[in-house]
Design a protein around this nucleic acid. Structure first.
Lengths: 241, 241
DNA sequence: AGTAGTACCTGCTTC
DNA sequence: AGAAGCAGGTACTAC
């Protein structure tokens, strides 16, 4: 008899559907962090689904933090590091209300402990405006895939994402528990620095640091530029109890 | 709030989509067994879906049983008894990947206990070659119907079934837990014995025993002729746990 | 009634 | 060529 499947432990394969060309992000981070990164689970800003139904997500946070500094006030590009991107498929933005996270990246960045895999997790991300987005993250046994479900469709709707648009997942450079989400339009200019393409591997993985600036097309600029002072404050994205 | 619907208990209706004319099967079985058969649930070779994901169905079994006797070696026509037939609809062989089992037969032969109705069951059938086929069997509340889902499309593909082709369900005469599945092409000659048509009721139900031989057109000939010695051996179809 | 959410399932494609 | 990943589906529930 075959045991009930649990998410397989991390084992990296060749990437498939992730494209990753000369990212503007390269200039903002410290890729070296990644080179030796252990894929062991971090304690994200995630809550076990146990207490679920804090469904009041989105848009409440800004009001909790009156008069935020304008985005341009804090050029903190070095505060986050990219994890991976994914060009959205029609299904990712359609009625299925779910985002498939390519297995290799899911297992690397959002590992589900064999025990916590049952119900999934709540992952919280800050967007370019500092707004907090919570997504249910879980593993589907039947399709052997990792998905964001609950909450995802709201994000798609608000950002008006279409197939071909690209989303980016980042995390805080020093506090890996802070997650960020960004996006750019399909075909949006990727301004930026020349950097070695890595053949499609997860962002930064084999990149040289690459200098250069620009943020062309990305809509998570400013994402790490707002409210940096709120980094670990209870009540902030991901720390809402 | 509406209570979760459970499959209605057995109540026979007028048959609908089951045709049943002069079956060649009549000659192989002991219809009398049927006349007084109780419709109480048997413990089929079915597994609760709990342990699901034995997804390795089909085709592994033959290799487990080396050097089977050739089909002709065991004329054991009396070892199985027909349950019912169904002419396949376009939907049964199309992209819906499901077979609707007429309610009367489902409730008679594959009753779902009120408690086991939740997730459905795994039913295992042997085909004409001795190959084991596992189908998920469940009740769809939305359509109030019983269906074979998972696994069905593979069977349709392998047998190249088309609308109008007819499938047959049988079980072992003495071990009702052993189930068998067969098929014949639409319009295939039904050789065989004259027998009273029963107006569409489940096979055999009101038939006289009917002698005669032949197997014209049926592709489950030999189905009960192979590996009879393996009847209850662990590891056989349905007992692979 | 409609939409979101959960958990299935499968064919296609790729490796 | 078999296995795996995933895009695109389904059924059903809850709200």
């Amino acid at each position: 008899m075959e045991p009930t499947q649990t998410p397989p432990s991390s084992k990296l394969h060749n990437p498939s559907s992730i494209s990753l060309e000369n990212s503007p992000w390269t200039s903002h981070f410290y890729p070296s962090m990644f080179l030796s990164s252990i894929h062991a689970p971090r304690h994200f800003n995630l809550n076990h689904d146990d207490d679920e139904e804090l469904d009041d997500q989105t848009s409440t946070l800004n009001t909790l933090n009156p008069k935020p500094n304008p985005p341009e006030n804090h050029q903190l590009g070095h505060e986050t590091e990219p994890m991976f991107e994914k060009p959205l498929t029609p299904s990712d933005v359609g009625k299925l209300n779910r985002l498939v996270i390519p297995k290799q990246h899911a297992e690397k960045y959002f590992p589900l402990g064999g025990d916590s895999s049952d119900k999934g997790l709540l992952l919280s991300f800050e967007d370019e405006s500092g707004k907090c987005w919570r997504f249910r993250y879980s593993y589907w046994n039947s399709s052997q895939s990792y998905v964001l479900t609950k909450g995802w469709s709201r994000y798609v709707k608000e950002k008006q994402l279409d197939a071909g648009d690209i989303i980016l997942f980042q995390r805080h450079r020093t506090d890996g528990d802070r997650l960020f989400i960004g996006w750019r339009r399909r075909g949006a200019a990727v301004v930026v620095a020349p950097a070695a393409t890595d053949g499609g591997n997860a962002m930064m993985e084999n990149d040289s640091g690459g200098g250069g600036g620009g943020n062309g097309g990305w809509n998570n600029r400013g994402l790490y530029q707002r409210y940096p002072h709120l980094g670990h404050i209870q009540g902030w994205c991901g720390y809402l109890e």
